[in-house]
Nucleic acid binder design. Sequence first.
DNA 1: TTTTTGATTGATACTGACTTTCAATAGCAG
DNA 2: CTGCTATTGAAAGTCAGTATCAATCAAAAA
Lengths: 167, 167
Amino acid sequence: MNQSKDPSTNNALLQKEIKDFLQKKGFRITKQRLAILETLFQSKDCFHAEELWDKVIQEDASVSRPTVYRTLKLLLEGGFLRPLDLGRDQQYYDLNTPDQAKQNHIICKDCNKIIEFNDPCLDIRESALIKELGFNPKNMTFKVEATCQELNSTGQCDRKDTESDQE
Amino acid sequence: MNQSKDPSTNNALLQKEIKDFLQKKGFRITKQRLAILETLFQSKDCFHAEELWDKVIQEDASVSRPTVYRTLKLLLEGGFLRPLDLGRDQQYYDLNTPDQAKQNHIICKDCNKIIEFNDPCLDIRESALIKELGFNPKNMTFKVEATCQELNSTGQCDRKDTESDQE
DNA sequence: TTTTTGATTGATACTGACTTTCAATAGCAG
DNA sequence: CTGCTATTGAAAGTCAGTATCAATCAAAAA
């Protein structure tokens, strides 16, 4: 669609698209949803629900946890978010901005550090495999669990004991 | 290690290796652990804890859920199981038999059908990426979420057996 | 074989992510 | 402004997995 190189322009466009989506579906534009969207557009990296909620209640303390989860579900339905399975603990999400290429992820099992990257070779192999195996692609994630190289003497990542990903 | 082509021979060998591991570590060979191992060796495909427990209690109804989880943790420590992240609901496992090559997985988001496959191209790219990004490989999973082609009129997989549902 | 020791067990309660319920509230169309 | 109903927050529920703890039992020692 739009190819602007300015991310804030794209965010504004996306925010309008989301509002259009809500109106078209008969959903309402509430102050809670606006607060969640605003917070969403501030985060550059992928995130999970609890993380998002933490940030949202700093702007509007009245927004409840269920509302955050419900809004994420809504945005997922609208195709504005991409679900990322980076570990069993929490569901991660990525904002589906038009200027953002499809990304793969690598996560450190010890400290939860996440690196996003692109790899056309993988994407091509991925598509071929899906076809070969008779599947319809829905949500493709190339995920590698590994330990990053900030290792301590026990062979584990130094950041291990930090609470889950405060990036 | 051993390259026998007879899986049952390998299972017997593996079962001995597990017992050796337990003894070496000062762990005990209990009837509960034996029941769990026996069930484990009967399943050809990957599995998750609840699934395993269901099968185990058919042989020995007294085995408790915590014991199954504890035994899986133990086997994981010993390197006899490989953890597979196939969806956020449950932790899946694969038996690390010597005759079993490293496998990748594709899972149907709708019906949870899992296909195991090998792909040397992926493995090579995987290793290169890990090195490039400065990670130490720990548990590499190439996972694709997709829908298998057994689709019904609503565009969803017919075998859909999960309770999650979107209108 | 019996004793001893502490690893292991099942019952129970708990955690943490996420969902459901429901009465009250608040968008928004008229 | 009014009425309809989508949405909300609080509270309770679900579900996979974990921690606690007294009782039990594997297995080494006597």
